[in-house]
Design a protein around this nucleic acid. Structure first.
Lengths: 249, 249
DNA sequence: TCTGGTTATCGACTGGTCGTCGATAACTGA
DNA sequence: TCAGTTATCGACGACCAGTCGATAACCAGA
């Protein structure tokens, strides 16, 4: 790289419509839609019919429309694969623009993470299926990377946000909740600890109900719910806090 | 939204080059380049010459080239404003595609956070200048939002990663380091605490040297450096740890 | 050389949080 | 009534960070 020149740099964005036509580029959105089904984390995939990568499983998504926001677009595309009313959470992951990530044309992709709560069982089209994330078939393009990015985002956010709300039914017992966390985190989760952490952070509250015991007996479990149905960050995990002000009174 | 249809959804990505020409859309990259100068966080801005928003200050960036990766592109664009060899860190922030975020045409933007270490003073072109982030002029388009996203990302990552390495000169005293952190975090940072936290996380180590005292006297300060010159995440801040395995031996 | 001013460093205290584990509660079926 | 099962609670201990006072190491001027 040469040192910076002092001449006026070219204008990056004149309102010149011909600018875009020089490069046949396309913008697409892709969704990593995750759900815990039978204690196992699954991702929604559909099987491509056409080339390239015909027959391969791939993430739902498609081309950004001319007057569509990115978030709008991914919701529209997902609506073709799953009842989007079931989507409890949707957030942007990242964008990828490697020139050869899709053969034959230039496609920049913006990826999203979507979550479906565990009790829902939305209808999916015939070419679409839930796959356990730990036993995926070979995916089209760079979609395997994208799935990993989604899992990774979910794992971290379960730790420092209240994102659990998006995984579970409206009410649940602590054992059930721990199973959801286990499925996403990939390791054991102690029920006692989970209960104390989430309670201390004001994420969950008891509904007052208790569940009847099953056939095998056991103490009936208390029923909980998440307090807030939207994403909140647990500030306790930004270290390097501002100094504490002395409590008034 | 209607329930999901069971008919085959349209193929999202046929290798059809005409698909892109229907919508005159452009993809741009934007960079929030931050540096602590004289204990104050600054962002690199340049003044637009042409419409729209002629005369307004805006973020460096420009149109993605036909065979360019996103990261390549932002480096190329930034090279026109600042010596990119000085860039100590570069990471993607997000993408924005609101249909009217730029008047006159459709532009999807992918934004990046760039950091320049405090000791560097790279030459910048005549139309480009460092601005204190707390006293910004009115910015073009949605660039003010983007700057906020960059600051926010920097603040959080200072807490749970070793990103400090990208802010400071190769060696520094703890007082200096605390001043860099203060400038980014926007609040007081206790030197004792900072030293212990970073040492415990193995981020910093003493070089062995000490600095001579200044005119005003005072004990000479020990000189430190960051151990690793690339981003590492502090795992201590993912709560909900996997269970501890008993230490061997 | 002494003394006060200044800056840096260190150690100790404290409170909060979490991983762990044993004790207890509340149910089932035999 | 008792063994088996599941859920809940309480306590302990480790660890870590925010705070603060004590000490160290320098300067300048009297």
């Amino acid at each position: 790289m040469s040192p910076v020149s002092l001449t006026r740099p070219p204008e990056p964005g004149p309102p010149d419509v011909t600018h875009g036509t020089a490069q046949p580029s396309r913008h697409e959105v892709l969704g990593v839609v995750l759900q815990v089904r039978d204690d196992v984390l699954h991702v929604l995939l559909w099987r491509r019919a056409l080339a390239p990568h015909a027959g391969r499983w791939s993430l739902p998504g498609g081309t950004l429309g001319p007057v569509e926001d990115l978030r709008e677009s991914i919701r529209r595309q997902l609506a073709e694969k799953v009842d989007v009313r079931e989507l409890s959470h949707l957030e942007q992951l990242d964008s990828r623009g490697a020139p050869r990530r899709v053969p034959g044309e230039r496609v920049v992709a913006t990826t999203y993470l979507g979550l479906v709560p565990g009790h829902a069982d939305p209808h999916v089209p015939a070419d679409t299926r839930w796959h356990p994330v730990d036993a995926l078939p070979r995916l089209a393009f760079d979609h395997a990377d994208v799935v990993e990015a989604g899992r990774s985002r979910l794992r971290s956010k379960l730790s420092y946000t209240n994102l659990g709300f998006a995984l579970v039914p409206p009410t649940f017992t602590m054992s059930e909740l721990a199973r959801y966390y286990r499925a996403c985190l990939g390791h054991e989760v102690d029920v006692t600890n989970l209960q104390r952490i989430l309670a201390r952070r004001d994420q969950i509250e008891p509904t007052g109900e208790v569940l009847r015991s099953g056939r095998s007996g056991g103490r009936p479990a208390a029923v909980y719910r998440f307090r807030h149905p939207s994403l909140e960050v647990t500030d306790a995990f930004a270290v390097l806090h501002p100094p504490r002000v002395a409590a008034p009174g």
